[in-house]
Simulated scan of single mutants.
Amino acid sequence: MSLQVLAVETYEGQSVLLFCEFEIFELDQPTVKWSRSDLSPPIVHQRQEEGDQLMDQNQLYIGRTSMKADALETGDLSLKLTNLQTSDTGTYSCTVRNVRGELRVRDEELLMEKEKMVEVLSGEECVLLPCKMMGLLPKDVKVEWVDAGNRKVHVYQNGSDKPEEQNQLYRNRTKLKRDLWKTGDFSLSLRHPTYRDNNVYTCSVHSWLRNIQMMKQSFLSKWLNYCISGAGENISNRI
């Protein structure tokens, strides 16, 4: 099995789900361990058939980690980490062990960022919510913008927009740049903003071909004159 290495970008105080799946039901006496090799002790969370085994858990994570109750039955070994701190930045390894040995299934890199505050001037035509990722991406990339109420602001997948999945509040008001899978720029243009658009917006990027996952958030408070033209170029930038 090839090791999957993903990056998740998030912010202090938020929660994050670190993904890991494995057909663990075929193993005898399995143990799942989430760890960080740069810590001592390295254990972030550990699960056995009897339940969570947290005696050796690093004190930085006490009371902040959890796995699904049926994780060992379903193979969904994802770890939920709450109340994120700056010190949570690092690479998390998901390892499965049984009587025959152990296998590191997946690594996820967690990056803590400062929350992006986007300010705009009242009455302006549009605002740009930033979201960028380095490197050339496969064409199967899926980009999903949602607001704090989990309403879909914009969905893009397999080279085209998906307006049928968009919440009516944002219909005909959003736009992404062209060839975003080449540039890695998933910034969203939101036209005709009003006070109702004051919100926290989350940009999620997924690709199954390259095992990529990324999440970024922007907080929209006022108005900024910064838009995207039909050709995918910035037509105004007075920051």
Results as ranks from 00 to 15, higher is better:
Asp28Pro: 04
Gln57Leu: 03
Phe19Met: 08
Val153Lys: 06
Leu111Val: 15
Glu113Leu: 15
Leu27Ser: 11
Asp38Leu: 10
Gly13Trp: 06
Thr194Leu: 11
Arg196Leu: 12
Leu77Gln: 05
Pro130His: 09
Arg210Pro: 00
Met55Ile: 13
Ser93Ala: 14
Met134Lys: 07
Tyr201Arg: 04
Gln168Met: 12
Ala148His: 10
Glu49His: 05
Glu9Cys: 11
Gln57Phe: 02
Ser207Glu: 05
Ser122Gly: 08
Glu109Pro: 03
Gln59Ile: 10
Ser66Met: 09
Arg64Thr: 07
Glu23Ile: 14
Asp28Thr: 10
Gly184Leu: 02
Ala71Tyr: 01
Leu169Phe: 15
Glu21Leu: 12
Met67Asp: 00
Arg36Phe: 03
Arg151Asp: 09
Ser37Gly: 13
Arg100Met: 13
Arg191Leu: 11
Gly13Val: 09
Lys114Arg: 12
Asp38Val: 12
Asp70Glu: 14
Lys139Leu: 08
Val96Trp: 01
Arg238Met: 10
Met55Arg: 13
Gly13Pro: 08
Ser229Pro: 00
Leu18Asp: 02
Gln53Ile: 08
Arg104Phe: 02
Asn199Glu: 13
Asp179Pro: 00
Val5Arg: 15
Gly51Ser: 06
Thr202Val: 14
Met133Asp: 05
Thr89Asn: 07
Phe22Tyr: 15
Val96Asn: 05
Ile62Cys: 00
Asp197Thr: 03
Val155Arg: 03
Asn234Asp: 07
Glu50Phe: 07
Glu164Gln: 15
Gln217Asp: 07
Arg178Thr: 03
Ser187Cys: 04
